[in-house]
Amino acid sequence: MAWKALDRLTPVAEGEAPLLSEALREKIRSFFPRYETKRAALLPALHIVQNTLGHVSYQAMEEIAEVLDIHPSDVLDTLSFYTHFWTHPKGEKVITVCRSLSCEVMGGKEVLDEIKKQLGIGLHETTPDGKYSLVTEECLAGCDHSACLLINEKLHKCVKPEDVAKLLADENNDKIDSERSDLFDPPPESAVTKTDASDGTSDANEAQEGN
């Protein structure tokens, strides 16, 4: 055929080894009793995998499907609905700048431009050192303190372009001070291959909790 069509017949080439360790699979299975069906554990499973591996690759989606006994297309369907989930590696910290109305009016755009300039990356890009990724999102529910941005799950309010340098320099700019939900309790130390506490990405709770 002379014209082009996206090839969906060939799998996305990724590493062969199973990405989900037995412990991780067990952690997902431990959510089964909470629901009537196994497929209902899909959201917790996605969180668990992203928290542990940093992102949910196509290979990981296939493995999740296997654990939940569903078709990988179901995993893709749900995962792609939420911008929270990444299908490719992201930086250690994700900066999410609000692009909704109040923040836009209060200079959110300028903050975004400043971050782009200082980090030297555009939207959906990651710095070469793997430290930061940059995205925008609709309202972060902090409109009364516009402009807002998130660094991982930590909400920063009333941000101005001149604050950006200081913010980026702060090692703890993503540490949240609220209590963690027990929903995504990290599995026992020994069970997971990656160490949790030390790395920022695995600190993830649901986004709202940081607010």
Binding site: R8, L9, T10, P11, V12, Y58, M61, E62, H71, P72, S73, V75, L76
Partner: peptide
Amino acid sequence: IDVFPGRP
């Protein structure tokens, strides 16, 4: 509408 890549 889509399929999972490799699962036509």
